[in-house]
């Protein structure tokens, strides 16, 4: 015969369904026969029902739920750069598009320069050199060269006298340097100077940083490796010299330019 103390100790296991079959039957039989244990069962059942039906706790606030969903999603799937970009587009489309455009330019501009063939590089160089020559030739007064603007040039060019010496030939009456200035060509800061040659035959020399520009090796001819071209009625001569490309433009012919090239290459 099972004791009341044992039955009372087994009631939660009976609720749980974890009593063995014979033990469960024994407890149930006892509850039928024992008024005190049956009352205990009934009171506890009433209490459990009251707790289940009337006790409650607040649910998670919506803002907290949303924050947790976001946090857990981020923790579960660490966001890669692409997903971050997508998220940025979603949150701040204007700023993100500006950033994306800058990234594209950052890639495409060098790629574009790299992909251009040497001839394609030379053509804009030729055209812009001619434009600069025309612009300088039309100026009434010879342009001055501001000292402060000579920073991109080698050390020997930083002071006016040092600069003029290698490009001017005081003893030479044919090629007289009259002036110059810093200009912009192919998105680069360049030095542009102008020589007086024969009357109304000015020659413009452009000294251009050669980063990203190549002169086609197969087209460089003669001593000093000069690239010659005639374009829109102008005679062009271009060659490498250290980190620069030198570009001469004139409506004189090749014979007028060659002595100057010789002087410039040996100064």
């Amino acid at each position: 015969m099972i004791r009341c103390e044992t039955v009372l100790h087994s009631l939660d296991a009976l609720r749980d369904g974890t009593l063995g079959k014979p033990e469960e039957e024994e407890v149930r039989d006892h509850l039928t026969a024992c008024g005190a244990c049956a009352r205990e069962w009934e009171v506890t059942e009433a209490l459990r029902a009251a707790i289940r039906n009337r006790v409650s706790a607040p649910a998670a606030p919506a803002a907290f739920r949303e924050a947790m969903a976001h946090l857990l999603a981020r923790q579960a799937s660490p966001v890669g750069w692409f997903a971050r970009l997508q998220e940025a587009f979603r949150r701040q489309p204007v700023a993100a598009m500006a950033f994306a455009a800058a990234m594209v330019l950052l890639v495409l501009v060098p790629l574009n320069v790299w992909m251009l063939s040497p001839r394609e590089i030379v053509l804009p160089l030729v055209e812009e050199s001619i434009n600069e020559h025309i612009r300088l030739s039309l100026l009434e007064a010879a342009p001055e060269i501001p000292v402060a603007e000579l920073q991109p040039l080698p050390v020997r060019h930083r002071r006016r006298l040092e600069f003029f010496n290698p490009l001017s030939f005081p003893d030479d009456r044919e090629y007289h340097l009259v002036g110059g200035q810093v200009s912009y060509l192919l998105h680069r800061k360049v030095l542009a100077v102008i020589y007086s040659h024969r009357p109304k035959r000015p020659i413009t020399l452009l000294v251009i940083p050669n980063a990203g520009i190549r002169l086609p090796e197969q087209l460089l001819s003669g001593r000093g490796k000069v690239y010659w071209a005639t374009h829109q009625g102008f005679q062009m001569a271009e060659w490498h010299e250290g980190p620069f490309i030198y570009s001469l433009v004139s409506d004189s012919d090749e014979g007028d330019l060659s002595p100057l090239i010789e002087k410039l290459q040996h100064q």
Binding site: A57, P58, A60, F64, R65
Partner: peptide, 9 residues
């Protein structure tokens, strides 16, 4: 997340 309310409670 399905158990968030119970945990909160």
């Amino acid at each position: 997340l399905q158990h968030l309310d119970a945990l909160y409670g």
